[in-house]
């Protein structure tokens, strides 16, 4: 089955990104496909490569980058939401790309299920 994922909250502030990541990991382990993860609202902050969590904490941004690399998961950051919040190509972490809201709608059309994680 193809899943689309929407994340509306930033890392560390809210559990949304953690829950979404663990959902994606479990889905991939079960042989499902993650069609796309779309980052919207404050969720765009998950794409900042300037993030530096303490050593004893999980690295939420790097975890997403690794998932993208290992499983070819498409991580899309909404351009309008990103520009509002200072996320640009120059501070984008590996594996993420900036694109339009049409990518969210397309995920809704193409995926079998769209699951939203937010506040």
């Amino acid at each position: 089955m193809k899943f689309g994922i929407v994340i509306n909250e930033g890392p560390y502030q809210h559990q949304a990104s953690d829950s979404a990541y663990l959902f994606c990991k479990a889905a991939l382990e079960k042989g499902h496909e993650i069609f796309r993860v779309f980052f919207y609202h404050d969720g765009v902050n998950n794409a900042s490569r300037l993030t530096e969590p303490p050593q004893d904490d999980r690295n939420i941004v790097a975890r997403w980058s690794k998932l993208a690399e290992e499983h070819k998961v498409d991580l899309v950051v909404c351009v309008a939401a990103a520009l509002r919040r200072g996320i640009k190509d120059e501070n984008l972490a590996p594996g993420f790309r900036i694109s339009g809201l049409g990518q969210l709608v397309e995920a809704g059309i193409q995926a079998d299920r769209l699951v939203t994680f937010g506040d």
Binding site: M1, F3, F23, A26, A27, E29, H32, R113
Partner: peptide, 13 residues
């Protein structure tokens, strides 16, 4: 349920 069960719940609904 664990996260795998979460995935299956979404898939089955």
């Amino acid at each position: 349920v664990d996260y795998g069960g979460f995935v299956e719940l979404v898939a089955q609904s």
